[in-house]
Design a protein around this nucleic acid. Structure first.
Length: 240
DNA sequence: GCGACAG
DNA sequence: ATCTTGTCGC
């Protein structure tokens, strides 16, 4: 059972949520990774159209092979609405429930959303990272806040994302001639390491494998193609 | 007051 | 995020 910290209630108003972000932002650590990466995870959420049912999932891949070694799926409900800047209060509760069931703890977690590239420098990747006390990287598909120059057209090129005179992330091209992704520090990592890791996890698609596979997983769960039941992929049969 | 605005 | 067919480009 992977552990996490309970630092506040999730049953809050938007005003209280902002207050919590301002109180917890100081806990985000920007530092070099302490250990080599052997396992990397991806986390994502899928929603039903007009209901408050959410499908959350976390997938753990062996690095650098990127083969699945663990998965955790959860179906629950949400009450907090989507409000730009407060995404964490809508999605984190479900992700925490999925995290509790993880057996193979990853060395870093990639989250679909911003890290410190946030108005209060506390996007979902940072918030979740502080709660599980693990290195996290924010990898979003679009901009929340900041300004940047368009990065080069080639895969691997990037430009920095600025806000109030500070670098808050990077705008990274993961494939030639495709829309870039927005990478930012979540927790316990540096921006340089975050960019490098995201690139090492790209396998021909714009979205890096951890979040891409997590996204596929929660969508399959929502469509009823798979069940939350069997948490882990079947063990390999022993050869003798 | 007018835009911008992760998923 | 989700609703959706065909279509443009590599």
């Amino acid at each position: 059972m992977a552990e996490f910290k309970i630092l506040h209630s999730w049953d809050v108003t938007a005003e209280e949520a902002i207050k919590i972000q301002n109180e917890l932002r100081g806990l985000v650590k920007i530092e070099n990774l302490k250990k080599e990466i052997h396992y990397i995870a991806g986390a994502d959420i899928s929603f039903d159209k007009g209901s408050n049912i959410v499908y959350a999932g976390i997938i753990v891949l062996k690095f650098p092979e990127l083969e699945e070694v663990d998965r955790s799926l959860v179906i629950t409900e949400v009450n907090f609405p989507y409000i730009p800047g407060l995404l964490s209060f809508r999605e984190s509760p479900a992700l925490i429930k999925a995290w509790e069931k993880i057996k193979v703890e990853p060395d870093v977690v990639v989250i679909d959303g911003q890290g410190i590239a946030h108005p209060r420098r506390f996007g979902i990747a940072s918030h979740f990272g502080v709660l599980i006390d693990k290195p996290t990287i924010g990898c979003a598909k679009s901009l929340l806040v900041g300004k940047y120059d368009e990065p080069g057209e080639k895969a691997g090129s990037y430009s920095y994302l600025y806000d109030s005179g500070e670098i808050i992330g990077a705008v990274l091209r993961t494939r030639d001639n495709v829309q870039p992704v927005f990478v930012s520090i979540g927790h316990k990592i540096t921006l340089e390491e975050s960019i490098k890791i995201i690139l090492q996890n790209v396998r021909g698609f714009r979205i890096p494998e951890p979040t891409r596979q997590a996204h596929n997983l929660v969508n399959a769960l929502r469509r009823g193609e798979i069940k939350p039941g069997e948490q882990r992929k079947p063990e390999q049969e022993s050869l003798f």
